[in-house]
Design a protein around this nucleic acid. Structure first.
Lengths: 205, 205
DNA sequence: TTCCACACTGCGGATAACCACAATTGAAGA
DNA sequence: TCTTCAATTGTGGTTATCCGCAGTGTGGAA
């Protein structure tokens, strides 16, 4: 974990320069790094899948609206939490945004500290999610190292079948199953079928 | 699964008799059974943990408000999806309700069909959740049948330890471990440690 | 053509797991 | 007191797993 991952970070997307500046200053005073974007288009053009932090998104902007920007991010598989800011309350809009996965929806005027608190909570909850996702990705990486045959054998091992049965179902000798099984354990970094099951447990096929 | 579980059902909580009647009629036309309650207090007094269906809850009521009623339900461990109805839009209220787990938050006037659609979606999503939860409960029931010693042995089996090692750690003979292990498999309805791990995988200790 | 990854197989031995048969002890209840 | 249940242990035998040693065949990359 590099220090940059631990430092709170927020992307500010708002077409009002005064607000961008105010939020940047606000975040700085609370030790949250930030970067401000003058439009949804600029933000989307620069957006990278590996970005960290969260996104503070104004709803009403001149060209692309915050909601449209949010939809575009969803399509691109964005995983960063999004916090909406809006001047005029609109319940259906807020409900829709939250149901699509936005982290929060704040109505102006809002308490400055409340916004930062929300940002920090968003980052914390996302960090936990991210951690799980990364271990999942590691497992996927290990799985990718298995040959097709090894994966086949593994599936059958995972349902608790005997080598004898597996050999029968795949029409190969027991010895071959043993070899594959052993290679699977080795590549996955486990020492038994039970450990393998545990490793693959949380998100299984 | 009895037929009553498959029949869509909604509790209507609203102190306006005209609305109760209108919603009851609306639901009936869409094959959704319902029961209307004239106040949050009446509803809470009757509420049982094993109720099925969903709850359509008006925000503004004379005595206890819909939000207070919701909080009371949360404290009691309610699992039914709650759909709020409100006359006057209030973004923070809607956001708060959704973040506390409400299924939806509809502003009057709303499309009648839209409400029923939401109710049906709520029931569907809850049915899936409920199904998972029930299999979890079944597993918990099986686990409860294990003696303390059997549970201890099971934990060690689940991390892939050899009987010999388990025997050592518990200061008992290998034979005893074998007996416990075998009893665990029998009670849990599995035939191998791998199956046991899979059974306990989704929600593990 | 040579090298290599992948899949496949046999033999034999060591270790672990599974199981039937058999039995003892202690505590909680009927 | 008699019964039941949980926990414990032993013996001996079968089955499964794990591994080293050894070897064959194939298709693709260098």
């Amino acid at each position: 974990m590099s220090p940059s991952l631990a430092t709170p970070f927020a992307h500010i997307v708002d077409d009002d320069e005064a607000i961008r500046d105010a939020l940047s200053w606000l975040f700085r005073t609370r030790k949250v790094e930030s970067r401000a974007w003058p439009s949804a288009e600029d933000f989307l053009a620069a957006w990278q899948p590996d970005w960290r932090g969260c996104i503070v998104l104004d709803i009403r902007m001149r060209e692309m609206s915050g909601l449209e920007c949010f939809d575009a991010l969803l399509e691109r598989g964005n995983t960063l939490p999004v916090i909406f800011l809006t001047g005029h309350g609109d319940v259906p809009m807020a409900v829709g945004a939250l149901k699509k996965g936005a982290f929060d929806f704040l109505e102006k005027p809002f308490d400055d500290n409340a916004l930062v608190d929300v940002v920090i909570r968003a980052l914390e909850s996302n960090a936990r999610r991210q951690a799980n996702q990364e271990t999942q990705a590691n497992v996927a990486g290990l799985l990718a190292q298995l040959t097709p045959r090894e994966q086949e054998v593994m599936q059958l091992v995972l349902v608790g079948k005997f080598n004898k049965v597996i050999a029968d179902e795949l029409n190969i000798s027991m010895r071959t199953v043993e070899v594959h099984r052993s290679r699977v354990f080795e590549k996955m970094g486990v020492r038994s079928a039970v450990e393998l099951a545990q490793l693959l447990a949380p998100g299984r096929d």
